Amino acid sequence: MKIERLSTDKIRIFLTFDDLTERGIQKEDMWREIPKVHELFSEMMEQAYSELGFDASGPLAVEVFALPAQGMVVIVTRGKMNSTSSDSADEEEDIYEMEVTLEESELISYAFSDFEDLLRMAKVVLPMLPEGGKLFSYKNRYILQVEPSDWDEKDSRYQALIAVMSEYGEATSVTQAVLEEYGKTVIAENAVQVLCSHFQ
């Protein structure tokens, strides 16, 4: 579980599927009101408080983005407090005063710190992915995002693609919106094909 502060009232939490499995939570459970999910949210908020000093009292807006093969990104935004009560029992209830929105992204997003690794990966996946893919530069790394829209997560090609990308790079939770705003677009479309044709 990785937690980072986006602003005074907003944090981002990246949960891997291992984080969920360890707690006996399936991806689909995040859509349901069950005690295990409440425990996970409590644990996330405690960790956010101890690591970042993020106080989760008051109303919270929680956005959950499911990313294929990587895990989930949870963005928590703190609303304004209506009362100034500091009663701990009230605060415990406030944690669950949250509005949850869920989105599932089909994007597969991998980061490569070495351009050579990115090229080697591109040459291996080209037969699987002859078109599509966007390449960004962000925080001194190359981030490749692909959207194999017609593949199912259980498809062997999908699994093979993830396996190769994991061998050369690492899954990242940076969203396309963040990359477009704060990163630099290196190759806007058909990134794998362009890389292979330019760098033999």
Score class of each variant (00 low, 15 high):
Ser85Met: 09
Ser86Thr: 10
Gln70Asn: 06
Val62His: 03
Val73Gly: 09
Lys80Arg: 13
Tyr49Thr: 00
Ser50Ala: 03
Glu104Gln: 11
Pro59Gln: 07
Asp90Ala: 06
Gln47Glu: 15
Gly53Gln: 05
Glu46Ile: 05
Asn82Ser: 08
Met45Thr: 07
Ser88Tyr: 09
Leu67Gln: 02
Pro68Ser: 01
Thr101Tyr: 08
Ser83Thr: 15
Ser86Val: 06
Ala69Phe: 04
Ser109Leu: 01
Tyr96Glu: 08
Thr101Leu: 08
Ser50Asp: 09
Ala69Val: 00
Thr101Cys: 02
Glu106Pro: 04
Gln70Gly: 15
Ser86Phe: 04
Met81Arg: 15
Pro59Leu: 03
Leu107Val: 00
Ile95Asp: 01
Met45Pro: 00
Ala48Cys: 04
Ile75Tyr: 06
Ile95His: 06
Glu63Gly: 07
Val74Arg: 04
Leu52Ala: 05
Ile108Asn: 00
Glu97Phe: 05
Ser88Leu: 14
Glu103Met: 10
Gly71Phe: 02
Tyr110Asp: 00
Val62Lys: 10
Met98Glu: 08
Ser86His: 10
Tyr96Ser: 08
Ser88Thr: 11
Gln70Cys: 07
Thr84Pro: 00
Tyr49Lys: 13
Ile75Asp: 13
Asp55Ile: 08
Ser57Glu: 10
Gln70Ile: 09
Asp55Ala: 13
Thr84Ala: 07
Ser85Phe: 06
Glu106Thr: 09
Leu102Ile: 15
Leu107Phe: 07
Glu93Arg: 14
Tyr96Pro: 02
Ala89Ser: 14
Glu92Thr: 08
Ser85Trp: 03
Met72Ala: 13
Glu63Asp: 14
Glu97Asn: 14
Ser105Pro: 02
Glu46Phe: 05
Ser85His: 06
Ser109Lys: 07
Met45Ala: 12
Pro68Gln: 04
Ser105Leu: 07
Ser109Tyr: 00
Met44Ser: 04
Met81Ile: 04
Ala56Pro: 12
Met45Phe: 13
Glu93Asp: 13
Glu99Ala: 11
Arg78Ala: 08
Asp90Glu: 11
Asp87His: 07
Ile75Pro: 00
Lys80Cys: 01
Val62Pro: 03
Gly58Ser: 05
Ser105Gly: 03
Ala66Leu: 11
Gln70Leu: 11
Glu106Gly: 14
Ala56Thr: 06
Ala89Met: 13
Gln47Arg: 15
Thr84Asn: 11
Pro68Thr: 02
Gln70Tyr: 10
Ile108Leu: 15
Arg78Met: 04
Val76Ile: 15
Phe54Leu: 05
Glu93Ser: 10
Glu99Leu: 13
Ile95Leu: 15
Ser50Trp: 06
Asp90Phe: 05
Val100Arg: 12
Ala69Trp: 02
Glu92Gln: 11
Ser105Glu: 08
Leu102Trp: 09
Lys80Glu: 14
Ala89Tyr: 12
Ile75Ala: 04
Leu102Val: 14
Phe54Thr: 07
Leu102His: 14
Ser109Cys: 13
Ile108Ala: 01
Glu97Ala: 10
Tyr110Trp: 11
Tyr49Ser: 05
Ser109Gly: 02
Asp94Gln: 15
Leu67Asp: 02
Glu91Trp: 06
Asn82Ala: 09
Met72Asp: 01
Lys80Met: 07
Met44Arg: 02
Ser83Pro: 00
Val64Glu: 10
Asn82Asp: 11
Thr101Trp: 01
